[in-house]
Design a protein around this nucleic acid. Structure first.
Lengths: 142, 142
DNA sequence: ACGGCTGTAACAGAAAATGTTACGACAAGG
DNA sequence: CCTTGTCGTAACATTTTCTGTTACAGCCGT
């Protein structure tokens, strides 16, 4: 299984920003976030860069720079994060085009796209139901 | 995106077996299935081997060997296929353990597991709603 | 102007999925 | 019982993707 962890990394960063904000810390640097996630600061800058383009976080440059949430944790859903970091399809179609001379090879891709589309919608519904505030609350109770 | 195509390959093979069966062809060899999927016969043997272990297909050895469905196409759901081929999680957790000295690093994995578990259940519900017979019908209308 | 931090390119490394070759095991049919 | 065609699986090659790392230019408070 090659599941990527981008949604996890981004959610972790946002949750950490939310907690820091609540504690009165205005901004966090990518080094500080990286220390919590336990990875390289560049990974964090890439991830938070995606979130900035989606309008979920703000960045300050220059001396005393760093990241902060662009809106309240209750207003950020995991679906927004998923879209921001480039949501991936759970299932891939054929890597090489199937044999179009076979009736199954010809028609199966649209048929599967239909089913896979329903799965994707189900995923989106679940992700839309969870906010960063929810994740932070759950995180602190564990 | 690294989505793997195992569910797609397995479903394609089953759909092709279902159509062949309806046409009166008792068994298909892995070469014949591979020709429709447009891949290597070994890939098909591996995939159908998973399905055989799950009781979804039967195999005949020796001369005149090949594969056939072990039950009616209406009785095979994509959820069974998903489980047979080793369903993968849509989202991965951190690759390296987060910093456990940080409250977020300590509690976020169980929190995310909870949300990711709900997503997984939603996926399973959708897959359970589609059978190979459904896929075959959709495939032939396209 | 200085210093600290972001933004991004470029490359290295690792991991996973897929594709390929090869060969032993097996069973139907002569 | 021997031939023939196919499965089962190991071993390896290839491709792709994700992650990690280094490096450096750009920005902006102080």
């Amino acid at each position: 299984m090659a599941a990527n962890s981008r949604l996890t990394i981004a959610t972790h960063a946002l949750t950490w920003l939310a907690l820091a904000q609540r504690r009165g810390q205005e901004v966090l640097t990518s080094d500080q976030v990286a220390a919590s996630v336990n990875t390289n600061p560049v990974i964090i800058r890439r991830s938070l860069g995606d979130l900035r383009r989606a309008g979920l976080v703000e960045v300050r440059h220059g001396a005393g720079a760093g990241w902060s949430l662009a809106r309240a944790p209750e207003e950020i859903t995991l679906l927004q994060v998923y879209d921001a970091v480039g949501g991936e399809q759970p299932f891939g179609l054929h890597r090489t085009e199937p044999n179009l001379e076979c009736p199954v090879g010809r028609g199966i891709r649209p048929a599967l796209n239909q089913t896979y589309g329903r799965v994707e919608q189900a995923i989106r519904r679940e992700l839309a139901d969870t906010s960063i505030a929810d994740v932070l609350r759950e995180t602190l109770t564990n």
